[in-house]
Design a protein around this nucleic acid. Structure first.
Lengths: 223, 223
DNA sequence: TCTGGCCATTTTGTCGACAAAAGAAGGATA
DNA sequence: TATCCTTCTTTTGTCGACAAAATGGCCAGA
């Protein structure tokens, strides 16, 4: 028996996709975690078919991997894959920086960019790794927004996620944070000045520096 | 009644995905074409559910778009989107060229690359647009193979497809072909010489030239 | 106590059936 | 003749049920 006006549970496939994705992003669902259809079916109060379809979308997007008669699991990454993705991320984020520098900036956006930089500077000064990490993420997203290229944002999402999914021992040590933020300042000023080549180059070396740390990750991160 | 040893039609979801994708690639299924579940269900001799799951994968990969109570259709692209993708493609293919130049090349690969270039040269000399177009595709694929970065190849596929799906009036005019192949020669020699920066820059301007033509496409291509 | 095979349980893969939504056809009214 | 409304058909969205595969536990034999 069904409530009037709610012919079917209102959790649409897209809702489920979005929810699952955010759980993967947040690291709540760690790489390798197997997703059980019946479980989620009950949790979302929805037929198994809908869960399955949501799974397929995520597989297509590359966030889940399917396991042949064993359903799906949150995608895992080898060190080599992570490094491969790092190289790609380098050029994608650099392009975002270039495009951002290309656009004529509105006053709102100039302000937003400056404030984002100031928040990172403050976190650096306070040596608050947690806040810095969050603001760092927001900063890169802001640049993608300014770059205004939907495809680029999609692809970047695809090479950025696993960094969040992995439980890294300590993503940023204090000294790394200092170097990272110095990179940000170059990028910020270049974008504000409309210096496209500089923005691109600065972002590239900024990301590359991050990748160097990835390469040095201990083996037990890849469980 | 079912044959022994074939408990279910052997068309797996992945098979269906692959088939559909190749039809989209080849242009047999043009952008905007609506895909009917029951139709494909009969064609593949498979339940509708499996077709649906295949659809979802393709949606996740970005090759199909879903239409809210009207199923899915082959993804369409506006001119603006195509240009956005062009910018992204620029940096991705350039990275592929750089990575290819980075790798120590085996003799087989040196030969393969030289021969690919020679085939394009021959097509250029013969003014055979059809062959050149096919060899051009193979050439870029070869570079991706040499670059040996699975993620990169995936992402490139995602920004390359629509060019093939669109029925362009004439992708290459003779003069365009000549310019395009000159670009290829730079890239080829740079990779053979291990000149990473040159390879990257040459590929970038090669792709950019192609994008210029995209920008000049007539409106009626976007039906 | 360890090893190996057998059985119960869980979980996935698949289909067919039903209901809702969209689209097409045809008729009535102005 | 044009427009709107009412069917009727097509197509999608959803679920539950069944079969195959994998998993885990149990017991027997060494």
């Amino acid at each position: 028996m069904q409530e009037i006006g709610t012919p079917h549970p209102s959790n649409t496939t897209e809702d489920i996709v979005a929810t699952l994705k955010s759980r993967i992003f947040s690291g709540e669902l760690r790489p390798g975690t197997r997703l059980i259809e019946t479980e989620l079916s009950k949790a979302f109060d929805v037929g198994r078919g809908r869960i399955r379809e949501a799974f397929r979308v995520l597989v297509g997007e590359g966030h889940l991997e399917s396991l042949a008669n064993r359903g799906v699991a949150v995608r895992r990454y080898t060190r080599a894959e992570l490094l491969d993705m790092g190289r790609v991320r380098e050029v994608l984020e650099s392009l975002a920086a270039r495009l951002a520098a290309e656009k004529p900036l509105t006053d709102e956006r100039r302000t937003a960019l400056r404030e984002a930089q100031e928040r990172m500077d403050a976190a650096e000064a306070a040596q608050d790794l947690e806040t810095y990490s969050r603001e760092n993420r927001a900063y890169h997203t802001l640049i993608e927004t300014i770059a205004d290229n939907a495809h680029l944002a999609d692809l970047i999402e695809r090479v950025r996620i696993p960094y969040l999914g992995l439980r890294l021992p300590r993503i940023f040590e204090i000294e790394q944070m200092r170097q990272s933020n110095e990179g940000h300042r170059f990028v910020t000023y270049a974008i504000l000045a409309g210096a496209q080549d500089v923005a691109e180059a600065a972002m590239r070396s900024h990301i590359r520096a991050g990748n160097t740390h990835t390469a040095a990750l201990p083996d037990d991160v890849f469980d």
